[in-house]
Design a protein around this nucleic acid. Structure first.
Length: 118
RNA sequence: ACGGUUCGCCAGGCGAUCGCAUGCGGCAAGGCCGCAUGAGGAAAGUCCGGGCUCCAUAGGACAUGACGCCGGGUAACACCCGGGAGCGGCAACGCUACAGAAAGCGCCACAGAAAACAAACCGCCGGUUUCGGCCGGCAAGGGUGAAAAGGUGGGGUAAGAGCCCACCGCGGACUUGGUGACAAGGACGGCACGGCAAGCCUCGUCAGGAGCAAAGUCAAGCAGCAGGUCGGGUGGUCCGCCCAAGCCUGCGGGUAGACUGCUGGAGGACCUUGGAGACAAGGUCAGUGGAUAGAUGAUCGUCCUCGACAGAACCCGGCUUAUGGCGAACCUUUUUU
RNA sequence: GGGCCCGUAACUCAGUGGGAGAGUAUCACCUUGACAUGGUGGGAGUCGUUGGUUCAAAUCCAAUCGGGCCCA
């Protein structure tokens, strides 16, 4: 499987986001919350949502790109068929390695980080 | 060297791996491959000015608002350039809502006699007196205040006063220079005319309203009810013009998709010419963001000065604010020659 | 993206050029055996910030910071 991230793999519609928040299963850690919900596709989808008044436009763009990048690299190890919503809260910025560990542990707790794949 | 003033420039580089968007080409059939391109000087605040779209190709009047030394630049401006005057600074240089207070209205708290067609508290002088004061003259002195009706000196006088004189200030016909703001000179006047227009206002100039969530096309979908009257064309009013037999308002219901607008521009780089400059004209070259939950990133290596402020959402011209570094010219002080 | 509004005491607000105020709250005292209520008195402010106009600015003007509302 390729490690690409196309437009299809991004959750776009407001009703779909509402569905994730209603039916999804929540896991959170410091400054980050992950909501996972099953979808009707064969692949996974993602959305990154910084909370209201999260820094400047530059900071919001940066955290979204960083999380998308980590998720893209870890995607082949995930169980397919889920929607991921990352809600980001303001806090101290982590470096790439620590942030990747944090996201992987969140996915493991959510039960979508399959050890059989990869 | 220290401090300061003005102007200009840059916005980490290179390489590797993975990845995103758009355009083009190919394979070939809705997916791959290749190539090219891919945020800013402020993209920001939304403070101004336009383009563009709809309402009438936006017409007249009033209201309202903005601007306000002169000349020029520009599509336009509240911006820019050059100049004048005033103010600040030792200077380089900077700042200025810089029209009108003799069109009119209003305000000037407290204090003070009086805050503006004048007037007289303490006073000064003359006359009179029943010694309490009264009548008249004066506005120089005191006192109050942010501000008190030219200043200083001399003459003059009962005491005084532009009452007279000299100098300074003010106004100023006129003359000269300048496109002009204005500058220089100035007969004469004899001080009459306090300040505030970022108070109302007057004069001059300009401005119709709304904004790409404008506007248009397609698809999907729903449910009407009540009221108002003669209207509507966008939100100040009237006229005019256009449209219409229906329209408007309120409550309720439905949609939350796709496409056009959407980027080739008052555009950029370089050169030449004109101009003091802002800028204009001509030529050559390249083809250079267009997303729509929102594309530029991540990691590693390496070098250095170790990277600030910060992310396009229709597009331009400005202003303002945030911010790292570099360079040039000029000025002050000190030292040296 | 665009349009619009508001910042005054701890809170809610008034104040349209010369004195910074009201209610609630808080503090002290009185009243009560004690509490509540009631009464008397007091403290608390860079008027969001920075400049400008004016003799004088919470007020007028400009810039800036923070908060809020609306659109399809």
């Amino acid at each position: 499987m390729r490690r690409s991230l196309t437009k299809q793999e991004i959750v776009k519609k407001q009703p779909e986001i509402d569905r994730i928040f209603k039916t999804g299963q929540e896991n959170s850690c410091r400054g980050l919350r992950l909501i996972v919900s099953k979808n009707q596709f064969q692949y996974n989808r993602i959305i990154v949502i910084p909370v209201r008044h999260y820094g400047t436009a530059v900071q919001r763009n940066r955290i979204r790109r960083q999380i998308k990048e980590i998720w893209r690299n870890e995607k082949p190890k995930m169980v397919p068929g889920y929607d991921f919503a990352f809600v980001v809260y303001p806090g101290k910025a982590l470096d790439h390695e620590k942030q990747a560990k944090q996201i992987v542990s969140l996915c493991k707790r959510a039960g979508v980080y399959g050890p059989d794949e990869g």
